[in-house]
């Protein structure tokens, strides 16, 4: 049982963090109308920044997480500026542009940070193992999980209990309608991509204790985020969270137990859900 406990915990934490990132992706697509294929690159950028900024002290940890979020937001801003000129040209051109930026970004990240997997240096207090109810848990995983749960709860509360949250949900559902109530669409597009980038950077930073960050992070997290968005859909944050936890568990436990099948599992689930889905995905024409 214990052999699966830590990977299980990892899976839930990883899943929740991916859910945060996937929320950013859905936001960008539904409200911003941009399929952001550079999303994984932003997650990886956040991860790299966090891994190199955190030197083992609590202030540096805080700085690392903040820096990652800011870098992600900045990346989102760059994407917003880049895609702004392509507004009239349709989804494909914007997606291809973000694709090109993702390729450039991946190259830059590997050039700057090297090709090894990086892990952050955490404060000594987090580098220990806690024993709860007779089972050992690494403190850093618990911290990441706690952070993920807090962020997800705040996110849910904001989305469903505040006026701003309702506006965001309305924009994701129908971008053009929102313009009708006086919201400037260009401001929405920029804000949405910046927020999406910030979420990606934050998620990337918090994922580093679990799986580290390396050259494979960007394409893997992009793909997983896409799977979560497709499987969970929006309109139901619980659905997305469930899908995300499923994805996280497959990536951690599944990779240990059925390594050959794990990738197919996720993609088959996505394919199956797409085949049986009745309602179109948010932001996409039926």
């Amino acid at each position: 049982m214990d052999t699966y406990l830590i990977p299980g915990l990892d899976g839930i934490a990883y899943g929740l963090l991916l859910a945060i990132a996937a929320a950013g992706l859905t936001l960008a697509f539904g409200a911003g109308g941009v399929l952001n294929l550079a999303h994984g690159t932003l997650i990886a950028a956040g991860g790299y920044v966090a891994a190199t900024t955190s030197t083992g002290t609590w202030p540096s940890l805080a700085a690392a997480v903040t820096a990652a979020t800011v870098v992600g937001a900045a990346g989102g801003g760059v994407l917003a500026a880049a895609t702004a000129r392509l507004r009239g040209r349709g989804h494909l051109d914007q997606a291809l542009l973000t694709f090109g930026i993702a390729l450039i970004g991946a190259d830059l990240l590997t050039t700057v940070f090297g090709a090894d997997i990086r892990r952050p240096r955490l404060p000594a207090a987090l580098d220990t193992t806690l024993t709860i109810a007779g089972h050992p848990y690494p403190a850093d995983r618990l911290a990441a999980l706690t952070a993920a749960v807090i962020i997800t709860t705040i996110g849910y509360a904001v989305l469903h209990r505040t006026r701003a949250g309702r506006l965001i949900r309305a924009t994701v559902d129908d971008r053009h309608m929102v313009a009708g109530i006086g919201v400037n669409p260009r401001a929405v597009d920029t804000t949405v991509l910046v927020v999406s980038g910030a979420l990606a950077g934050l998620a990337g930073a918090l994922c580093t204790p679990i799986l580290g960050v390396g050259p494979a992070t960007a394409p893997t997290t992009l793909l997983l985020s896409l799977v979560i968005v497709v499987c969970g859909g929006l309109g139901s944050v619980p659905g997305a969270v469930v899908a995300a936890i499923g994805v996280g568990l497959v990536q951690t436990i599944g990779v240990i137990t059925i390594p050959a099948l794990a990738p197919y599992l996720l993609l088959s689930a996505m394919a199956l859900l797409l085949l049986t889905r009745r309602r179109p995905l948010p932001g996409m024409p039926g």
Binding site: L35, H91, L223, V227, V230, M270, L274, M284
Partner: peptide
């Protein structure tokens, strides 16, 4: 549209 692009990305990886 872009859903196909997404799915085909998964196909390429697979």
């Amino acid at each position: 549209g872009t859903v196909v692009l997404m799915l085909s990305l998964a196909v390429a990886e697979l």
